[in-house]
Amino acid sequence: MHYVQVENLTFYYGEEPVLEDISYHIDPGEFVILTGENGAAKSTLIRNTLGLLKPAAGKITLSKVNQENEPLSVGYIPQQIASFNAGFPSTVLELVQSGRFSRGKWFKPLDKRDHQHVERALKSVDMWNMRHKRVGELSGGQKQRICLARVFATDPDLFIFDEPTTGMDEKSRTQFYELLQHNAHDHGKAILMVTHEHEEVKQYADRHIHLVRKEDSEWRCFHLSS
């Protein structure tokens, strides 16, 4: 079973082809990294995969259900998520709790299990003591961590991260990779992570997708390395 299946995806910005004939899949229980040089349209590929951009050609299938036959839940951290509106009127706790809304809680009160997920997620990024702070008062690194906590609180089946370790020190990055590996291997989660830290993360990842520039194209167009 594939959680994500992308077949022959081609994407244009205006007239310019950016991605050509991309096919890949992500399965439950695997931790996959996506790499490529700066401007290799890694984020564009992710945004196409999630339906945030419309491809010119190709087929993208996100599984409707997880391995337990329940609706598939997706958690996404966009690039630069930590630069969100500094004036956003919310405490850290409210923001992380909002990660539970998509688990059937848009119109229902959060229960004990939801609160446990939130507490665990905040503790996993060492932000539990800051839970009553206003998000606008946090540093860039702290904002990054609460955005990660929001996704962990969702406890999704499929994690998609776009350079989530920006601004983290080496120790935090290592702990983060271990946490992802644990989620994939021990809890059957599927993880796709865009990263520039290939050398650092390869020992934790199960698979590596690499975007390279097409040599025969007059445009700055990328495809998967064979």
Binding site: L52, S98, F107
Partner: peptide, 21 residues
């Protein structure tokens, strides 16, 4: 009262709101 939570997420980040369904 009905849409406070969806509006909160939409206001936080539209891409996140889309992925949240």
């Amino acid at each position: 009262l009905l849409f406070k939570r969806p509006m909160y997420v939409l206001t936080f980040d539209e891409d996140t709101a889309h992925v949240d369904g």
